[in-house]
Structures are given as structure tokens and as C-alpha cells.
Design a protein around this nucleic acid. Structure first.
Length: 811
RNA sequence: GCGAGAGUGGCGGAAUGGCAGACGCGCCGGACUUAGGAUCCGGUGCCGCAAGGCGUGGGGGUUCAAGUCCCCCCUCUCGCACCA
């Protein structure tokens, strides 16, 4: 071993050697237990990886290496989420083609991951923008189509002026585009393809209970799905025979308190029922609502506004005619776009009724007999009053009674409503997976037959989005014009491409058999490897990728393609690493720290250790380069410790009892903490052990302590561990060894410190043989001078003994 | 507004209701050095010469014992935000 630890000298050497020997290739030994470790599919951006990104990749790498040493067959592979708007927007900005930029960026990511010593089986690398991959994305589209889960519909949809494309609901954040957070989305009327994710709403909701995910993420999905039970009812419109207002309510028990109705301004009924006198006012209100941005419209602070249509609905329960209004607090996108207003029991309706002097009947009274508050709605459950046949019923009973009555009298039925809408997947952009559909005048919508897949994304020089609502592919006659697969006659191809999230909805299956050409995956390989044992990624995908991938998995399950219902039974979110200034790391802010710079300065192992040590894996924290100095220093100390031992001739040694105990305790702690992804404290345990061992002589340390130390360091600092392992005389890689086990008997403390408290204050500490009897401990304590001083002659009233920990005396 | 999470030394952070501050950074002192952003040794929550006292956002409570459990309040982060 060299006298000085030089990371730059040993790291490239071992990386080359591991690659040469195929150390990280996945073993296809299906007799062993498997461990499928996966990080979320990264989009390889032109900025490259920062030390922030590594806070995901390094800990995962440690977990993978750890599991490999524990005897698992580990699948850990990497690929690129290369299709989609981010890649295309970047290429447009740089006046290049994504076909050039994507491979270049991906290669850079790969180089950086290797630089950091992350162990992937690169023979399994995938790229969603290659025909070998997107052929199967198209195949899945057809699977969904066949199963009635892909359909075309016209509707007003979210449009981003910067993306020049339609977006899915999930991709609109605070009224802005998820990729352009300063750009409010607008609505555009287009015919689009949808995936029927709502058909899976209940299962997506229920199965959340079966998976081990952060509660926060589960909650976000539950809220996003937004299931609510209630009833759909309808009231006839007075003087408009045949017209009805259909509405959804979660509180059918309040129907007797309904004093007006409200429609969304876009509701189709508005045009048909508005009276001539009200027409001008109604139309101007609709125009104004349309002009408002989504943010303005959804602002809850804003005072509610609305306009009377001049029409009345007949409340079939009270037999009264009630006015129909339009107001923008009613959303066309939820329920039926119409509500019954029960101002006594709904705060929004209450505010609206107050403003426009509409009646506020009270039909729910608090169960305790008190009066409902006068200045607001009473929204809690209670007892129904002033409500005909349901008067006197508790709210829950009244809800059921009205739903039953409605059904029996053809007024409505109990129903469930969801906040989640179907997933809109059409994108009017070039850089995406072509939708495998053909339009024929004679046959209509015709799916491209499987044997004609993939529909190749043609090369295009001029691929700028047009903004017309059609993809640039529409400008390529040789792409558009085709023969109908059904009748052979002239037909046109679909020119929209798929949302990039389609590609990432099945990629986790592809890693099991990445080169399979006859199917998206090999069934046997998937049966062995899937589902993913540990999935790690950022929380920002809570309602996008994670929801979509779950849906596709359920579709595949239903189709009998796979035997599991959830793709990611265990999910963890790594904490975000902010820049040193507390802001997001970004090129534009000039605060990005690259792994390249850190490796250059301190070495990959030191960088890796700091990524692990800087804080709990799942907690966010700020980047602080000073910490890398600390872990680099630690590695130097390890180096010198092992070097001293090697230079002493690697003595078997005769370690004392305490040294052996320290060693076995360190193994116990490190094993437990790495298992639970508590890398910071696992490393602290190793540092602590080094502090103890480093002051001993080589013969006192002995081979067991040194070797287990190097083995435990191996997943975290693979290069230095390999170098030291070889220096200890081994010819095979440290990464092929077993993780050390510990002997609980050896790890057990023989002598423990028992704290003596008097009235809750620590007055003395006793060194006592472990598991001493209480009597002995008590006797020892009473002999203590400090204890006697503080007892001051008083007799103990009560004594509590916690074995091996504490003796608490109360006087 | 609603929901979730968090608040511990100068800093990052440790602590199944049982010695608060492990481990590291920084800082102070020392050793070795021509030199130090190298290495090694010691110290380092606050007040106090000491004995001791005080300390986990603030206030109350439960307990022999509270960073940890309960109630109220403050601050920060995230998510949702007229979903009928």
C-alpha cells in the first residue's frame, strides 16, 4: 500500500478492472433470492448530474451492493426516459436535434454514474426513444385500446403556450404548466386520445393500503383520486319540457333546503334555458369567466360571483320552483357541472346566497339540540329538520333515505364521483412515441396491427411545434398517408405522439429482459424479478408517473400478462439536496456542484460517503462542501489504519475481549442501519469503531477486526475497500465477499453503566456487571458518596430499577 | 383555509419514555513540521473558580423520569386549495 491515500490513483484502476471482469453483470441464477432495486427513470438533461442527483443514486448503490454481499441476486440497471417535451424543448433551444442530443446527454449521465462508482449492469441499459423500446410502448397502447381503455374524445383541454401542446390534468400545477411554472395554461378545444384511468379509480385507491409507501405520497394519490360518495339527482326545468338539471351531491339529505341551483358557466344547458331578459347579462358573464385564467378562477379568496339565468328548476322534494344561476365557483370538470345549492349546510352556497339575497333555509340541526350558527353554514352532520319525510333522521340515515327514495321514483340514484379525470395522452409534438392508429374514411379508427409495429418516428429536420393544434408530423405526407390496414384503401396516420409518461409506465418491466424482441418482456424473467423490491425517487412524481405506472400494471394484471397488482410495493423518497444557498441547484442560478468537480478534488469514495453522511436519506438538506473534507479525512484515517496493519505483516493477532465486542457491535449496528436505509448512522458507527481501533497496535487489533471493517466499508466506499482488501492478501474482489455476520453473545456488553437518579436528577454513575440483580445495584448505589450526600439521611420512598440502565430513587 | 411533516450546540445531525448533543464540520490549544487546506493528541451546549445550576421553538400537563406522550400557541417546509 502506498504511504498516502490517493483516490485519483486507485479509483479509475478499479473501475476499469470491475468493468473488465463483469463484476456487476446480473447473474441469471434464479435459485437465489432476488432483489430488484430501481431508481426512477431519469430524463438525461443537458446539464448533467449534480451532487444533488447523487443523493438518490449513491445510497441506492450502497443498498444494492449490500444486498449482493448478503447473498441476493441483485438487479440494478439504468435507462433513459428520453422521449418527451423536456428533451425536445432543450434541442429546439440549442438548435439541434433530439436524436443527437439525447444520446450525448445519456452518455454523459452514464459517465458520471460510473465516475461515482455506481454499480449498474450496463448490458441492460434502455432508452425509451429507440424503436426497439417504443415498439412496445405502442404495443401497450394497442392493449389498452383493445381493452376499451384508450378512446378518443373532444373537449376543452389544457394548453401550454410554451410547449405548444395539450397537457394532462396531472401536468397542470397551480394553473401553470409543470415544465413552465410561469406560464398559465389556457383551454383549447381539440379531439384527443385518453386512457381511461378512471375505470381503475377504486382499485388505485384500495390497493394503496397494500403497499409500503410514504404516507404523504399515498395521501396525495388519495386526494388526487378524490373519491366521494353521494347521489346523482335531477330536477326538471320549469317551462322547458324535457329539460333537466342533473347534479351530484354528497349531501342528498339537504334536498329540502335547496333554494336555488347553480350551473357552471360552460354548462350546455345554459344556452337553452336562459330567458331573453337575462341573455345579455348571462353572455357577458360567460365571456368574462372564459377570459379569466385558471388561477384567478380557482382562487378561493375571491368573492363569489354569478348571474341569474331567468329559468327555474322544480325542486321535486319541496315542490317549489327555485331559480337557476350560473357561477364560476361551479366547475364543469367535476360531477355534472351543476349543483343544488343548500346554503344552510354548505359554506360556499351560504356565501353566494348572502351576496345575492337568496333564501337560506336550515335543514340540519346540531345533534346536541343547539342552534346552527347564524353567520355561516352548518356543515357537520346532525339531525334533519324541516324536511318532510326525512325530518328527525340523523344525517347518515337521511342520506340513505333520500337516495333510496330518488331511485324508487326515478329522480336519481346513489353514485360515486371522482376528482380524477381520464389521462389525456395526445401531444401535438414531434419528439414522442407515435400513436399507432390509422384513420380510414371507410373503416374509421383502425389500430395498426401488431406485426406492423413499430410505427417509426420519421426523421424530421424542421420539427418545431406549429401551435396550430396539430403535430409537426402532420406536415410529412410520406408519414401521414398510408394504406388502411383494414381495407387497404387510402388512410391517414394519427400524427400526435404520446405523453412521455406512457414510456415510463412500463419501463420497470423491460429491465428484466431488456433485449427481448418477441414481446415487451419475457414472462419468466418478469415472474422472477418483479415486482420491484425497492423503488426510489423524488416526491414530485406522486400523482403523475406513480399513478400512471400503477394503472398500467393493473391493466397488465387484468390481461394476464403479469401476476402482481402493484409494481412498487416499497417506495422511498430521497430528500432533496438544495444548493449551499438554500435554493434549487440550477445552471441559471450558478450554484450547481458537479460530481466531476468533487471527484476531482476529493475522490469518488469521499463524495459517496458525504452523500450518505450529510443527513438522513429521506430528509432534505443543503449542500455543504466542507463535509466532503471530513469524509476524505476519514478515508485517510482508514487507509493509515489498514496500512499500519499490513506493514506489520497482517498478524492474525490476539484481540482482547473488548476489541472483539467492539467489532461485533459495529457489525450489528451497521447491518441494521444499512438495512433500514439509515446510511448516515451506519457510517457514524464505522467512524466510531475506527476511533477505537486506530489507537491499538496491529497485534491487538487482529485480522478479524480489520477484514470486517473493510468489508463493511465496501458498499459505501467501493474503491478504497477494494484496494485495501487486495493489500490484505486477497486475490478476489471485496465485492464478491459475504457481508460479515456478528455473534450476539460477543456483541453483548459485560459491564454496563447504571445511572443513579435522586428525584429525577443524575447523581452518580455505576459500572456494574451486566444483568446484575436489583438488590446488588441498590446496595452499590447506597454506598456511593455522591448518593449519600444527596440523600442527606432521608429514606427512599420509592425506587425504580430499569435493568442495565438506571436506578431512580424518590425521596 | 384544510391536510401532512419539521423546529435539538456556531453548522449537518444522534438519541425503543431512561446519562440530551453519538458521528462529523467548524473553532480553541498542543505535537510533528521550512510550510500546511497534511498527519497526530487534547478540548469544545450555556452560566459558574468550583460545588452546582440551566438547557431540545413558547406555555401548560401526565410521569419516579419527557426532545420523545397529551393539550394550547408560534415559526418554517411541503401538499391540496370553491371537487358540490
Amino acid at each position: 500500500m502506498d504511504e498516502r491515500y490517493e483516490a485519483q490513483a486507485i479509483e479509475p484502476k478499479w473501475q476499469a478492472e470491475w468493468e473488465r471482469s463483469g463484476l456487476y453483470l446480473t447473474a441469471e441464477d434464479r435459485s437465489r433470492p432476488k432483489f430488484y432495486l430501481l431508481e426512477m427513470f431519469p430524463y438525461p438533461s443537458g446539464e448533467g448530474l449534480s451532487v444533488g442527483h447523487l443523493h438518490n443514486y449513491v445510497p441506492c448503490d450502497v443498498s444494492g451492493r449490500f444486498h449482493r454481499m448478503r447473498g441476493y441476486n441483485v438487479l440494478h440497471a439504468m435507462g433513459w426516459d428520453a422521449f418527451g417535451l423536456p428533451a425536445e424543448n432543450d434541442a429546439l433551444l440549442k438548435k439541434l436535434h433530439p436524436k443527437q442530443t439525447v444520446p450525448r446527454y445519456a452518455a454523459n449521465f452514464k459517465r458520471q454514474l460510473k465516475l461515482a462508482g455506481c454499480a449498474y449492469d450496463w448490458t441492460r441499459e434502455i432508452n425509451s426513444s429507440t424503436p426497439e423500446y417504443y415498439k412496445w410502448t405502442q404495443w401497450f397502447f394497442l392493449l389498452l385500446y383493445r381493452r376499451g381503455l384508450a378512446y378518443r374524445a373532444v373537449g376543452a383541454q389544457w394548453w401550454c403556450e410554451k410547449c405548444l401542446s395539450i397537457l394532462a390534468n396531472e401536468q397542470v400545477i397551480d394553473g401553470c404548466c409543470w415544465r413552465h411554472t410561469d406560464t398559465p395554461v389556457t383551454k383549447k378545444e381539440l379531439e384527443q386520445w385518453y386512457f381511461k384511468i378512471t375505470a381503475y379509480a377504486d382499485r388505485l385507491l384500495e390497493d394503496l393500503d397494500t403497499i409500503d409507501w410514504p404516507e404523504r405520497i399515498k395521501l396525495m394519490q388519495r386526494n388526487w383520486i378524490g373519491r366521494s360518495e353521494g347521489a346523482e339527482l335531477s330536477f326538471p326545468v320549469a317551462d322547458h319540457p324535457g329539460e333537466q338539471v342533473k347534479f351530484f351531491t354528497t349531501r342528498p339529505d339537504t334536498v329540502f333546503g335547496v333554494s336555488f341551483m347553480v350551473l357552471a358557466p360552460e354548462h350546455p344547458l345554459v344556452a337553452r334555458i336562459t330567458s331573453p331578459q337575462q341573455r345579455a347579462e348571462v353572455e357577458s358573464y360567460i365571456a368574462q369567466a372564459r377570459r379569466q385564467s385558471e388561477i384567478e378562477r380557482l382562487s378561493t379568496i375571491k368573492e363569489k360571483t354569478g348571474v341569474f339565468t331567468g329559468a327555474y328548476a322544480h325542486n321535486v322534494f319541496t315542490k317549489e320552483n327555485i331559480p337557476i344561476w350560473i357561477a364560476d365557483y361551479v366547475l364543469m370538470g367535476y360531477g355534472t357541472g351543476a349543483i343544488m345549492a343548500a346554503p344552510g349546510e354548505d359554506q360556499r352556497d351560504f356565501e353566494f346566497a348572502r351576496k345575492y339575497h337568496l333564501p337560506i333555509p336550515r335543514v340540519t340541526a346540531p345533534a346536541d339540540g343547539s342552534r346552527p350558527p347564524a353567520d355561516r353554514a352548518y356543515t357537520d352532520h346532525g339531525v334533519t329538520v324541516n324536511s318532510g319525510f326525512i325530518s328527525g333522521m340523523p344525517t347518515a340515515e337521511a342520506i340513505a333515505a333520500v337516495a333510496k327514495y330518488a331511485q324508487e321514483n326515478n329522480i336519481g340514484r346513489p353514485t360515486v364521483s371522482y376528482r380524477m379525470r381520464d389521462w389525456l395522452i395526445s401531444r401535438q409534438r414531434y419528439w414522442g412515441c407515435p400513436i399507432p392508429i390509422v384513420y380510414c374514411k371507410k373503416c374509421g379508427i383502425v389500430p395498426v396491427p401488431e406485426d406492423q409495429l413499430p410505427v417509426i418516428l420519421p426523421d424530421m429536420v424542421d420539427y418545431q411545434p406549429s401551435g396550430t393544434g396539430r403535430s409537426p408530423l402532420a406536415n410529412l405526407p410520406e408519414f401521414v398517408n398510408t394504406a388502411c390496414p383494414g381495407c387497404g384503401g387510402p388512410a391517414e396516420r394519427e400524427t400526435d405522439t404520446m405523453d412521455g409518461f406512457a414510456c415510463s409506465s412500463w419501463y420497470f418491466l423491460r429491465f428484466a429482459s431488456p433485449h427481448e424482441t418477441r414481446a415487451p418482456f419475457d414472462r419468466e424473467a418478469v415472474d422472477y424479478w418483479l415486482p420491484v423490491d425497492l423503488y426510489v425517487g423524488g416526491a414530485e412524481h406522486a400523482v403523475m408517473h406513480l399513478l400512471y405506472a400503477r394503472m398500467w400494471t393493473k391493466v397488465m394484471y387484468d390481461a394476464g400478462l403479469i401476476n402482481f397488482k402493484e409494481p412498487f410495493p416499497v417506495l422511498r423518497n430521497q430528500g432533496i439536496i438544495w444548493a449551499a444557498d438554500g435554493q434549487k441547484m440550477s445552471k441559471s442560478k450558478g450554484n450547481v456542484v458537479t460530481p466531476d468537480a468533487m471527484v476531482d478534488k476529493y475522490g469518488a469514495d469521499a463524495l459517496r460517503l458525504w452523500e450518505l453522511f450529510m443527513g438522513p436519506f429521506e430528509e432534505p438538506t443543503n449542500w455543504n462542501e466542507d463535509g466532503v473534507v471530513g469524509t476524505a479525512r476519514f478515508l485517510t484515517r482508514v487507509w493509515n489504519f489498514v496500512r499500519r496493519y499490513v506493514e506489520a505483516g497482517c498478524p492474525q493477532g490476539n484481540p482482547g475481549e473488548q476489541t472483539r465486542r467492539k467489532t461485533h457491535q459495529a457489525i450489528r449496528t451497521a447491518t441494521d442501519h444499512v438495512e433500514r436505509l439509515r446510511f448516515n448512522t451506519a457510517l457514524a458507527a464505522l467512524m466510531d469503531e475506527l476511533n477505537y481501533l486506530a489507537r491499538l497496535e496491529p497485534a491487538e487489533i487482529g485480522r478479524e477486526a480489520v477484514e470486517t471493517y473493510v468489508l463493511m466499508l465496501a458498499p459505501m466506499a467501493p474503491h478504497i475497500a477494494e484496494e485495501m482488501w487486495r493489500a490484505l492478501g486477497h486475490t478476489d474482489s471485496v465485492h464478491l465477499q459475504n457481508w460479515p455476520g456478528f455473534d450476539p453473545a460477543l456483541a453483548r456488553d459485560e459491564v454496563v453503566t447504571v445511572v443513579v437518579q435522586i428525584n429525577g436528577k443524575v447523581r452518580d454513575k455505576l459500572e456494574i456487571a451486566a444483568d446484575s440483580a436489583e438488590d446488588q445495584v441498590r446496595q452499590r448505589a447506597l454506598q456511593s458518596a455522591a448518593v449519600q450526600r444527596h440523600l442527606d439521611g432521608r429514606t427512599p420512598k420509592k425506587v425504580i430499577y430499569v435493568p442495565n440502565k438506571l436506578l431512580s430513587i424518590v425521596v
